[in-house]
Every structure is written in C-alpha cells, then in structure tokens.
Design a protein around this nucleic acid. Structure first.
Lengths: 351, 351
DNA sequence: ATGAAAGCGCTAACAA
DNA sequence: TTGTTAGCGCTTTCAT
C-alpha cells in the first residue's frame, strides 16, 4: 500500500475503514477492549494503521491527556564514564516502561539546572531523575509546584527521596586500602597522603573527605587541612593543585586519593610531565572506576559505584509513590589494579 | 505573587491582564513586534507571566505549529567515551539554537534504531542526527517519507548527507606509527602485527582494515586474513580473539591495532591475566582516545577523532539545507603515549 | 493595536 | 458496540 506524503491520522484511518475517530483511537491505543470495540473492527483498524505507517502523534495525545510518555533525567555531564553509565541504565529502565528517555546535561550549573528542568516541564515529562544537581532542593520546589514526581540520584536533597552512593564508607574503604598498600617511609603519615579533586561544598565530596579523614584518624591521628584539595570539579584545578603539592613536598606523595575520574585526568596531565621512574613509590586511589585507569604504570585502586542499583532503586521509589525525603544509601565496591568489568553495554543488548 | 497550583496558561494571563489570548500569545512567543502589539502591553503580559511562573506548553505549541523544538540524536551507546563526547557537543549546539536535545542509544541494533526513530518522529522532532547506525539508509527512508531533515554521523549512508571520520587515513597513520615503534624482531612482519575488534561488515571497521593493510603493504607486502579479527563489537569477542591469538603464536604480538576502546577493554581483560613483564615487547595502537589508556604500563598510541568538527559540520549541513548524499570526511589525529587532552566538559561550561 | 475564532490530532464522557 | 462532541493550550488568519 502506498503511503501518503503527510503523516496519517486517526481521521484518515476512520475515513478509510468507515469507523469513527474515537473507535480508531481506542483500537490503536489499547483501550478498545475496555470500550467494547468488536475485535474484528479493532484488528481491521490496526491492520490499516500498520499499512499506512501510522504512528500516534504524541504531542496531541500528550496535550489531551496531560501526560507525554517522556521521562527526564538531568546530570552534570554526558562525557564521563560514571554519568554515561547512569544514562545507559536509565535508558534501559525507561524503555522497559515504554517511556522515551530525555537525558540532558547541566554542567553543574545551578541556573542551567533550573532552566533545563523548566524546559523538560514544558514538554510535560511524566517524571524526573535529578542526578548530581548542585541545588536539588531548588529543583524540588519547581517540580513540587506542578506536582511532578522526581527523585535525586547521587546527591541527596531534603525535599524529595534520594538514592546516593555511600560515599563515606566508600572513601573509608579506599583510604584504608591506599594506606595498606602505601610504601612505608619514615615521617608522619600526615605528610604522605593527600585528597585531591571535587568541591568541598558538594555533599558527595564532603562525605568522601569525612571518610578519608576518619580512616586516617583510625590509625594515625589527626589529618590537617593542608592534605585536602577540593575547590573545583574542573580537571585543570587538580592539575594545578597536584603540581603545587608535589613541588612543595619535593616529589610525588606516597598516597593520593583522587576524588573522581575528572580530577584524575587533571592529575595525569601533571604526571605526564614527570619521568616514569618517579612513580616507584606512589599509589593512587580514585573514587570512580575506569578500566583503563587500572592498567597504568603505577598501581591504581578504584571505587566502582553500583550504577544499576542507583537507578533501579530510583524507579522503585517512583513505582511505590514514595515522596518523603528519605535517603537510600547504595554501597560501592573496591576495585583492585588491573581489573576489567564488563560494561553495561554488554549486558543490555537484547535479541 | 502566589503561584497557582495548576500550571498557568495564556488564558489565565489574558484574564488577569484584560488582554486577549492571542495578544498574550504574541507577547510571549516573540512575535509581538510583528503583530504590532503596544510595547507596554507586551511588557505587562511578560511581567505577569514571569510572576506566575508561566512556561509555554510545548505540546500545545508543537501540535499547532507542527514543530516541537526537539532535536533528536540516536547513537550506539551512551557508555563510551567517543559517543558520549558526541552527545556533549551535540547538546551544546542544540542548546545554542534553542532546541531541546533528545539523545537515545540503540545498541547497534537495526530494529531498535527503526523503533527509536519512529518514536522520535511521533514526538515531532525537528531534525535528527543518526550516529553510527547499522542501517542508515533504512532510517533515511523513514525520515524522507515524512520530510524530516536528518544527517548521518560517523557511518555514511547513501540517502542523506554524511559526516564521517576519515577512517582510512586514520588507520593508515596509526598503523605506520605502530610499525615505527614496534620492537624489531626477526621474522615476517605478517606474523607480528594484528588487527582486533569491530565488525568487518560495518563501514568504519572496513575502512580501518583497508588502511591497516595498505600501510603494511607499503613497507612489507601483503597482509594475510589471519591477521584480522573483526567479527563483533562486543568487548568479550575481543577477549576471546586475543587470547586465542596469543596462545597460537605463543606470546603477545609485537604490534596490535585495536579498533576501538570497546575492543580495548576486551583485550585488557585478557591482558589482566598475564604478568606485567610479558608486555616488554608490545606496542598497542587504539582507534579512539582515552586519556587513561595513554598511561598504561606498556606503550599505547591512540587516534582521537575530531568530535567537535563532526557535529559542527552536521549542523552546518542542516543550516544550509543540504540534502544530497555527499560525504564529508573529517581528519582524526594521532595521540602519543602519556597525553592528556582537556575534555569537552571543560571548554563547554559557560558563565 | 487588538480580538474572535478555527483548528492542530487526540481522548473520554456521554449518547445512542 | 459505536458515534458525537467538547476540549487540551497554543498559533494564526481575518476582522475590526
């Protein structure tokens, strides 16, 4: 059957089958049994629709029914292994529910986050995942005003349910492991292990710093502020910080806790100026996983967050209509050097 | 001013300002000058709209005007450094044009690609970027039928304009560099350098294999088929391939051309079972860039595709209303070991 | 310089 | 078992 140039509508199908538009509508949107349309009628309509290449105009349906079939997610960046794995899993869950995912990055900019949420709302998204927002509560206010179901992922808020990694224990585990593997050199440990990257005003970073300090305190007493560099998420800030640190202490520290792969890239930028031999006595722990990073020319241990669980719990909360401000903690996992995990890509492919 | 529970509409604003809905509409969508609305009227309307937290219902606008303000992009996966950098750049361009990006992954599955495009069409996207599709022409047919502007990125089609990396020259450059740096050992070169990953039926892989073979032929004559393993994009296939290869030749080959970071992860999975010393005489070249991969315990050279240009040229083609099936080639760049480039994330942040 | 009114494609209440 | 009808919120033509 030749397809029309214009997209066909239920009216076209109504005309050609002799049924009414509402019958066609019901036959096509799955409510025909409830509307007691004769099966043969429904089948006839569906057949013609398929032949014509009909697809529902979602704008019209959405306008009428005040729902869109879209589900939104905002996150700090696409270009990051952690966030893009969240996207991958989020998308799979959305698809499984018959929703079309709309994933937009907001570059850790509160104003951009606000604008983006308003944009998504103007498209009538049915619910929203807010990942790593710099000001989740401000976004919650916007969502609540129009009764939009939403949840915070990765960074908690106080006005909506949150699912976050247990950054405190993760950092503690990672720090303990760094200390265990660190070359034993004389002098105060306080001058040998450092925290680099992230921003101290952000909850995730703050929790990780707390875990870092507590782990050290367990074994070696207090940590000084001079051991923590957390003023920005920009990789370039970490480049500067680690350079100044190394120049000050006259070498690469024995242990470095890097707050994310973003920061790690910044650190590597400085490292690339140093000879390979200078890394003999260094161990790096990085909060976030990258398979290539576990294969570097010096030992790197990593933390892998449970991305599947972060998203799955988010959907569970939506399903159960939970709206209080509970915080669900998800345990991350320690990754040893030279470890390759399969990517979500591998497990998702279906056929 | 207290905001209403329900989202306000132009009718609410019309009522409260005493203007008519059409005047309000014009005042709010930027056409008021053309409609010769008094400036004071427009300002009054805009002020109230702001106070009320009004935002346009894009479904209604889209339904009426047959445009949505959405721009779609489909790609094989989010969870990949190359694709997610394409997302990041695509998003920036879309935003700059006042469009809302909808980026969906289709897992290199032709059927999923088709379904996704139909879904995006049902939301009336204004144009579409098709990245790395397994069957671009089938998608072009769907788009053309409803007059949807679209372009192919990364993999070319014959029914729409395409912007692709120059995979042939990129592979040639990479192969030459592998050969230049390879440890010189006796015996035929044919038994010392191998191509691993990707799928030979996919244009990008095929072009890279061609570049690989030609580069070797330039210096050492023919290449045998036994040197090329390209049956799947799954990392696990590369794990198996490289394992069997190494077991067959009794060691790690002197040179390995890895077709993508996906495949590289698979290769590393096997490498992680080998002692560090066994890599003394190996050099790996990988088609795709990852900063961490350049810091491994054996030398890795990489190809970095010009992501910014791939997307920018795509938008240029859209802007210039080009619809023929021309193919624009973008040159990629060789990356030496221990090289860190700044991420798109850093350059995009605006404020 | 502005208002009235039609209609985009769909859903759902109501009528038959 | 099916048809009629009234909108959803907006844009746009035409009238004033």
């Amino acid at each position: 059957m030749k397809r029309p140039a214009r997209k066909s509508t239920i009216y076209d199908i109504a005309q050609r089958t002799g049924a009414s538009p509402s019958t066609v509508s019901a036959a096509l949107n799955g409510t025909w049994q409830k509307r007691r349309i004769k099966e043969s009628t429904a089948l006839e309509v569906q057949k013609l629709a398929a032949d014509l290449g009909y697809t529902t105009n979602m704008q019209a349906r959405g306008l009428r029914s005040a729902r869109s079939g879209l589900i939104g997610m905002i996150l700090p960046a696409h270009f990051n292994r952690y966030f893009s794995s969240l996207s991958q899993i989020f998308e799979a869950h959305a698809r499984a529910r018959g929703l079309c995912p709309v994933i937009v990055s907001t570059l850790r900019d509160a104003e951009e986050e606000r604008r983006t949420v308003e944009t998504l709302i103007s498209y009538a998204i049915d619910s929203l995942f807010i990942v790593g927002a710099s000001n989740p509560d401000a976004l919650s206010d916007i969502c609540t005003a129009i009764n939009l179901r939403h949840i915070n992922i990765d960074l908690p808020g106080t006005k909506a349910p949150s699912v976050v990694s247990d950054n405190y224990s993760g950092a503690k585990i990672l720090t303990r492991e760094i200390m265990r593997l660190m070359p034993k050199v004389p002098g105060r440990l306080g001058e040998q292990i450092y925290f680099i990257g992230g921003a101290y005003w952000d909850n995730a970073t703050a929790e990780r710093i707390r875990g870092f300090k507590d782990a050290i305190a367990e074994q070696h007493g207090e940590v000084t502020e001079a051991q923590v560099f957390a003023n920005s998420y920009e990789p370039s800030a970490s480049t500067t910080d680690v350079r100044e640190l190394c120049e000050r202490i006259g070498g690469i520290p024995a242990g470095i806790f890097v707050n994310s792969t973003f920061a790690f890239e910044g650190v590597l930028k400085y490292f690339s100026t140093l000879p390979v031999e200078s890394f003999r006595n260094t161990i790096v722990g990085c909060y976030d996983y990258d398979p290539f990073a576990t294969f570097m020319h010096f030992p790197v241990i990593m933390i892998r967050q449970n991305v599947e669980e972060l998203i799955a719990q988010g959907f569970r909360i939506l399903d159960e209509h939970i709206t209080d401000s509970r915080v669900i903690l998800i345990e991350p996992e320690l990754v040893h050097p030279r470890s390759i995990y399969s990517s979500p890509h591998e497990t998702l492919r279906r056929h």
